[in-house]
């Protein structure tokens, strides 16, 4: 019995495969299409689609998508909007006045705080000055000299009235 040549067999098989592949590659693709093939496929696709869209919600969506929505614009609509915009642009006296008042809020508030700070500080300063001038008096009683001046000024008119009567 002839010994089995494994390598030779493999070599032969490899050659055959290569040859077969060459032959297969040389064969040109047949790209002919049967008549009305695309139409036939599309009919089936549509049929399938209608079968799929049998559920009510799908049907509703299909209806919703295919419904034409009118883009009709009322007569001279742009003029109407422009008139409204011009109204915005014309300043209303009341609005301007209120806007000014609102703008004045912050400065007024600032002035108020400053005035409060000054009025809180000033008596102390006067008191210190007076204490330096007359230390004995300040130790016994703490009279605000500003308040006495204020009273004199405020009641001056009433003093004059006494003389007139």
């Amino acid at each position: 019995m002839e010994p089995y040549d494994v390598n030779g067999y493999r070599q032969m098989k490899a050659n055959d495969t290569e040859q077969f592949l060459k032959l297969a590659k040389s064969v040109q693709n047949d790209e002919r299409v049967p008549v009305n093939f695309s139409a036939r496929v599309m009919t089936r696709v549509r049929k399938q689609h209608t079968l799929e869209t049998r559920s009510a919600d799908e049907q509703f969506l299909k209806f919703f998508r295919n419904l034409p929505w009118k883009e009709h614009v009322p007569y001279a609509f742009e003029k109407r909007i422009m008139a409204r915009i011009r109204e915005f642009l014309t300043p209303d006296p009341l609005t301007v006045w209120s806007r000014m008042l609102w703008r004045a809020v912050a400065p007024c508030f600032g002035v108020m705080i400053l005035a409060a700070l000054f009025s809180a500080k000033e008596p102390t300063a006067a008191f210190i000055d007076q204490a330096a001038f007359d230390p004995a008096e300040t130790t016994t009683e703490t009279v605000d000299p500003e308040s006495t001046d204020f009273e004199t000024v405020m009641l001056a008119s009433f003093d004059d009235l006494e003389y007139t009567w």
Partner: peptide, 22 residues
């Protein structure tokens, strides 16, 4: 130039109306 806004309105109003009607 506020008047130029009218041109923008004229350009977009059909689309906006169509959208709003949906």
């Amino acid at each position: 130039e506020v008047d130029c806004f009218e041109e923008l309105i004229t350009r977009y109003q059909p689309r906006v109306f169509g959208m709003a009607r949906k």
